[in-house]
Simulated assay, not measured.
Amino acid sequence: MDYHIHSTYSLDSRMSMEAACLHAIEAGLQEIAFTDHIDIDWPDNSIPPFDIKTLDRYFEDIEKMQDMFKGQLMIKKGIEIGLQPHILNECTDIIKAYPFDFVIASVHIVGGVDPYLGVFYQGKTKEESYRQYYEEVLKLVKSYDDFNVLGHLDYIKRYSPFPVEETDHLLCTPLVDEILKTLISKGKGLEVNTSGYRHASGSPMPHPDIIARYRRLGGKILTLGSDAHAPEHVAFRFETALMEIKRSGFDTLTSFTSMQPEFVAIP
């Protein structure tokens, strides 16, 4: 299963839904979820926001793919919704208005700034920047309920300008563990995002040590996603990720239908 795929409904993707499905079948996948972006109140005015008025058409196009690939590929209706403290009610309104199978909650903006931008790190040490990001994630997962899994927990490492070190995943461990405990207590899951293998760290997001800590703390709900925005990244490095997941103590992944989990044995 690849539970994090972006089509051209995401402004940063160049992959059609049909191309994603064809590459998923070629990669031997049985199930995918389209999880295009909704980021309300995006701070960069040079980039047009995801227009939620297109959601009706988004669902229609997913249903077309379901018909086209029936019997070859299970296709779920998902979304990746970007959380910020002041838009949570709007996020809920969207999630409640449409029949989603699966919702990834991601934190792309901290204090009105995307960690993608260098300005986020100005005047901060590496640990201070990680701490600010994790504090925002913790605040949001405590405040928000209408999602299934938390996306790319250590997203900040993707864009951090500081040199990559093997111990980066140990930064702010008490904060990270509090995030994991909050997810577990609320019956929410964790995403393993393999786009991290394309990063200098060479590890998924989050790092396997964090996945193992989630398991030791009692976490059960785990999804696997490539975060693909291009055909060649569908199911990217899944074999490696599955070995890491097994070593972390998991023998199942989770699929979702109508936002309800079902555990699927890892082959």
Results as ranks from 00 to 15, higher is better:
Gln122Ser: 05
Thr167Phe: 12
Pro206Arg: 10
Val176Pro: 07
Phe69Ser: 14
Ala27Leu: 08
Ala235Tyr: 03
Tyr134Asn: 01
Ile52Pro: 10
Pro85Lys: 09
Glu191Tyr: 09
Cys21Ser: 11
Val141Glu: 02
Ser46Trp: 12
Gly118Cys: 01
Ile62Lys: 01
Asp227Phe: 00
Met74Trp: 09
Val103Ala: 10
Lys188Gln: 10
Pro85Glu: 02
Ile25Arg: 14
Gly123Asp: 03
Asp51Arg: 14
Tyr121Trp: 14
Leu140Val: 01
His199Cys: 11
Glu191Asn: 11
Met205Cys: 06
His4Ala: 11
Lys64Ser: 08
Glu80Ile: 00
Val234Cys: 07
Pro208His: 04
Ser195Phe: 00
Lys220Thr: 01
Met1Val: 13
Asp114Glu: 02
Ile109Leu: 10
Gly218Asn: 00
Leu217Thr: 07
Lys70Pro: 03
Val149Ser: 02
Leu170Asn: 08
Phe162Gly: 09
Pro261Gln: 13
Ala27Ser: 15
Lys220Pro: 00
Gln132Asp: 12
Pro48Met: 14
Asp2Gln: 04
Thr54Gly: 03
Leu180Thr: 03
Asp209Met: 03
Gln260Gly: 07
Arg247Leu: 08
Lys77Glu: 12
Asp227Arg: 04
Phe162Asp: 04
Asp61Val: 01
Arg158Cys: 08
Val110Gln: 13
Ala212Tyr: 03
Gly78His: 01
Leu222Val: 15
Ser160Glu: 10
Phe147Asn: 03
Ile156His: 04
Ala265Gly: 09
Gly218Pro: 00
Glu232Met: 12
Leu29Trp: 07
His23Phe: 13
Glu166Gln: 15
Asp67Thr: 14
Pro85Met: 01
Val234Ser: 07
Ile75Trp: 08
Ser160Phe: 12
Asp2Gly: 08
Lys70Trp: 12
Thr257Arg: 11
Ser143Thr: 08
Pro48Thr: 11
Met68Ser: 15
Ile94Lys: 08
Gln122Phe: 02
Thr92Cys: 11
Glu262Asp: 13
Gly187His: 11
Glu191Arg: 09
His37Leu: 10
Glu63Trp: 03
Gly28Thr: 11
Ile40Met: 14
Glu239Ile: 11
Thr194Ala: 11
Ile184Gln: 07
Val192Met: 14
His152Ala: 06
Ala33Phe: 05
Ile179Phe: 03
Asp209Trp: 06
Gly189Lys: 00
Pro161Leu: 01
Ile81Thr: 10
Phe147Cys: 03
Ile32Cys: 04
His6Gln: 09
Thr8His: 09
Glu127Asn: 10
Gly78Lys: 00
Ile47Ala: 04
Ile109His: 09
Thr125Asp: 04
Glu262Lys: 15
Gly28Glu: 13
Glu128Phe: 05
Thr240Gln: 15
Gln30Cys: 08
Val107Leu: 00
Gly78Gln: 01
Leu140Gln: 02
Pro208Asn: 06
Val103Asn: 08
Pro161Lys: 02
Gln132Cys: 04
Ile156Asp: 02
Thr257Lys: 11
Leu183Asp: 14
Lys126Val: 10
Thr54His: 06
Leu253Arg: 05
Ser10Gln: 12
His169Trp: 15
Tyr133Asp: 10
Lys64Glu: 13
Ala265Tyr: 13
Pro43Gln: 08
Gly111Asn: 13
Lys77Gln: 12
Met17His: 03
Val113Met: 15
His108Thr: 12
Ile94Asp: 10
Met205Gly: 00
Ser16Val: 05
Val141Phe: 01
Val107His: 00
Gly111Phe: 05
Phe147Asp: 03
